Amino acid sequence: MARHLTIAVCQTGPIQRSATRAETVDRLVALLERAAAAKAEVAVFPEMALTSFFPRWEMEDDAEIEAFFEEAMPGQETRRLYEAAAALKIGFALGYSELDRSSGKTRRYNTMDLVGPDGKFIGRYRKMHIPGGTEASAGTTTHLERRYFELGDLGFPVFDYCGVRVGLALCNDRRWPETYRMLGLGGAEVVLIGYNTPLLLDEAPSLGHLRMFHNHLPMQAGAYQNTVWVAAAAKAGNEDGQQLIGGSCIIAPTGELAAQVTSLDDEVIVHRADLDLIAVCRKVNFDFELYRRPDQYRLIAERAGPL
């Protein structure tokens, strides 16, 4: 019997620092409604979908910083999104800034949660590839994620979503082959990604014309080499003075762009992903059972010895 998953990518336009959580959640609910109306079964939202991309600023005050974070999910302001998912019977992946005090120490993570079509939590991913630095540098686009976030501590988990194996990733993760490899080895069939990416980098103006190409290139390569569907949602447009790239898309395991946004605004794209195409692609080049058995990797490492 043929297997499909209808996926929606919910791109948002800019979310200014002046926007309230209530206003932003209203927008996310509206996008989820549009996705459900198009018969989508799961939707993916951008990285840090509840706030402006605050790592573009140097802040010192903990209260000012933690205003961008969520201490509980769902919380009082975000619960409506979960309730909408249950009412519409569509799940979602949501990127946000997580404040974790469970260990008795305050930890901050760049996080994405996977939520089921019943509005219930399924699983969590914390960003592994944290870009930027801790202090602003002259001549460099200010990107201070390492100032505000710890390295993710959950690895690259893969979750069951209504019988489909789903992995999560965030922004800079999408540029690294390890992300797709780990998720592929974990049995992922679909990878949901959220990102915020500047249109231009002050340190590399000569590469400006390649920004969208380099945005899509690693995701298409990751989809192809690991035979997974990739659905990536961006924040786009002029956000607090910084132009974000957009380019949200859905990519087939053939590496082809199956759907792509046409704007820098709130926009929904939907594609019915043929999960059987994964097996077809694996037969051609990427038979995991034959070429990617974990025991083979361990044997190679043992034979190589210490570095």
Rank of each mutant, 00 (worst) to 15 (best):
T6P: 04
T6N: 11
I7G: 01
A8R: 06
V9R: 05
G13M: 12
T20F: 07
R21S: 14
E23R: 08
V25W: 06
R27G: 10
L28Y: 02
A30G: 13
L31M: 07
L32N: 06
E33M: 04
R34F: 00
A35L: 01
V42A: 04
A43W: 04
V44W: 00
P46T: 01
E47A: 13
M48N: 09
A49T: 02
L50P: 03
L50I: 08
F54D: 08
F54E: 10
R56K: 14
R56G: 12
W57P: 10
W57L: 13
I65Q: 10
E66H: 14
A67E: 15
F68P: 03
E70M: 13
M73Q: 08
T78G: 11
R79Q: 15
L81C: 13
A85V: 02
K89P: 03
G91Y: 06
K105S: 09
T106R: 15
R107N: 13
N110C: 10
N110R: 09
D118M: 09
G119Q: 06
K120L: 11
F121M: 15
I122F: 02
G123N: 06
G123K: 09
P131F: 00
G133F: 05
E135C: 05
R147K: 09
L151C: 12
G152A: 02
F156Y: 13
P157R: 03
R165A: 09
L168Y: 04
C171T: 05
N172A: 14
R175W: 15
E178A: 10
E178Y: 05
T179F: 12
Y180T: 04
R181F: 09
L183G: 02
G184V: 03
L185E: 04
I193V: 05
G194N: 02
L201A: 12
S206D: 14
H214G: 11
N215W: 09
H216D: 10
L217W: 07
M219P: 08
M219A: 02
A223N: 07
A223F: 07
N226W: 07
W229D: 00
A236Q: 04
A236E: 04
G237K: 03
Q242D: 15
Q243R: 14
G246I: 00
I250P: 00
I250D: 00
A252Y: 04
E256W: 01
A258C: 05
A259V: 00
V261P: 00
D265A: 14
D265E: 15
V270T: 04
V270C: 02
A273Q: 05
D274Q: 07
A279K: 11
V280H: 14
K283L: 14
F286Y: 15
F286P: 08
F286T: 15
D287C: 11
E289V: 11
Y291V: 10
R292E: 14
R292S: 15
R293E: 15
D295T: 11
Q296L: 15
Y297Q: 13
R298P: 08
E302M: 09
G305N: 03
L307A: 15
L307Q: 13
